[in-house]
Structure formats: structure tokens, C-alpha cells
Amino acid sequence: MAGGTQTTTDYIQHHLQNWVYGRHPDGTWGFAHSSQEAAEMGFWAIHVDSMAWSIGLGLVFCWLFRKAASKATAGVPGGFQNAIEYIVEFVGGTVKDSFHGHSKLVGPLALTVFVWVFLMNLMDLIPVDLIPYAAQKFGQYALGMDPHHVYFKIVPTTDVNIPAGMALGVFALMIFYGFKVKGPGYVKDFILHPFNHWAFIPVNLFMEVVGLLAKPFSLALRLFGNMFAGEMIFILIATMYSAGLILGIFGGFLQLGWAIFHILIITLQAFIFMVLTIVYLSMSHEDH
């Protein structure tokens, strides 16, 4: 656990702080040693742990699926190939159901979103203290750092930058395909819709832009909110371990129950992110 000298608030705050590398207010670049320092860096900072886990899990996805793709045969598939093909077929079926148009991008995009988000969410099921605690010990003994300055969050999707980055990517694709499919007529969607009269152009513009911007926001915040809340509950349950034996054992059962329930949530959130990505892209492919 997090050590006896910490208060519960400290413990929770420590758990919610990323490992940050960025520009200090004095202009030098380096790691933040506290939440305050991290906050002072503002925009010019990067969450090293989020990025490392996110890219690492993305590489796991690429490696797994590339391995299946390169070894795949049209004959009788083995267990591994079968599993990968099952996922691909599931994603392909969802794309076929929701996306009405022809695109070489949407299938691979949906697959990447689904598997990658799922893997990132899956990190939530690793006991909440395990890897941060190991990182703390590693930082303390191997790198000679103050253990209280070692911050390590392992669930990238509880960092709002990660879902927001993906949502922005999807948003860029929505705009791109909107113009590609509809040409300059895409603008008409914003100024002459839903009220097809020149006098309503400002009203239309306001409503449509709000509607457009709501899409990436809802996409990012839904995933972030769910994963952050889930992580928070894991952390809160974990604070029970320092409150005596009976509460500790009770907390252990709570942790187990929440983890089992969380299996559903992480899969569902990955699925929802994928489906919304497909639906949004389908909408920008549709001609009115």
C-alpha cells in the first residue's frame, strides 16, 4: 500500500497524478516532482506514463494482429488465428451494419480503435497499486528518487488526453470525409440545415457547429468519464486496506466484485467508442 505516513487524500491524489515531463516555468525541461510542478507546466508537458502504456499497448495490438495476418492461411485456422479472425469478423460485421458506403479506412480504423481501447482499458484490471508500487520501489532504489515523487498511472484511458487525442483524430477524419464526399456542398450542411432559408443562416450555423463539436467531446468524455470513475472506485476501495483487517478483507471482496463488473465496462466502452467512430464517419459519408 501507499505507506503509513500518507493520508488517504494524499494517497488518492498521488494515484491520480501522471508522470509528467515538460517545461518548467523557468524555461528548463524536466520531470515534474509534484502535482503542483506538473500543473505549472501547463500545456507544454507530456504524460510519459500514459504515452508509454498507450504506445506500448498499440504495439502489442500491431504485433499480435500482424503475427496472425502473416501466418494466416485459408485452410483450417489454428486457435490463435481463429481468435484474431473472430475479432476481425466481429468488427467487420459492425462496420457493415453501421457504415453505409465504401471505404478502405473504416474497417481498420474500427479494429484499431476497438482493440487498442480495449487493451488500454484492460490495464484497469491490474490491481490498482501493483505497478505504481513497483515503479515507486524501482524509482527509489534503482534511480535514487524520492518515492513520493514517482508518479505512475497505468490506465491510459483515465488520462483525458488519450481519449481526446483519439476523438480528435476521428473528428479530423469526419471533416476530411465530409469535404471529400460532399465537396463544397458540405458547407451547406451547416448553413442551410435544419432551416433551409437564408434568414436562418446564423441559427443554423450555431446549431450545427454545436452538434458537430458535441461528437468528439462526447466520444472522448464518455470513455474518459467511465474509465476515470472506475479507476477512482478501485482507488477508494484500496483505501480500505489501511483501515484494519476486517475492512481490508471486505475491501478485497469489493475489489474482486468491482473488477468482475469492470470486465463488462471496459469491453462495452471499447465497443461504444468503436461504434460511435463508425457512425460518425458514416454520417459524414452520407449525402442528403
Binding site: 495490438f61 500482424r66 479494429l111
Partner: peptide, 30 residues
């Protein structure tokens, strides 16, 4: 929740992985 450079890092990583999947994974398996 503080937005910072991680956002763009994730966007770039996203683009790279999608491109990889589009080129080397999806067509082969389908």
C-alpha cells in the same frame, strides 16, 4: 484533467497504428 502535449502524441500514435492496421493487418486477414 489537464490537456497538454499528450493529446497530440496520442493523435500521432493513433494515426500511425491505424495506418499500420490498414496496410498490414486488415487486408491480409479479410
Amino acid at each position: 484533467m489537464n490537456i497538454n502535449l499528450t493529446l497530440f502524441g496520442q493523435m500521432i500514435a493513433f494515426a500511425v497504428f491505424v495506418a499500420f492496421c490498414m496496410k498490414y493487418v486488415w487486408p491480409a486477414i479479410t
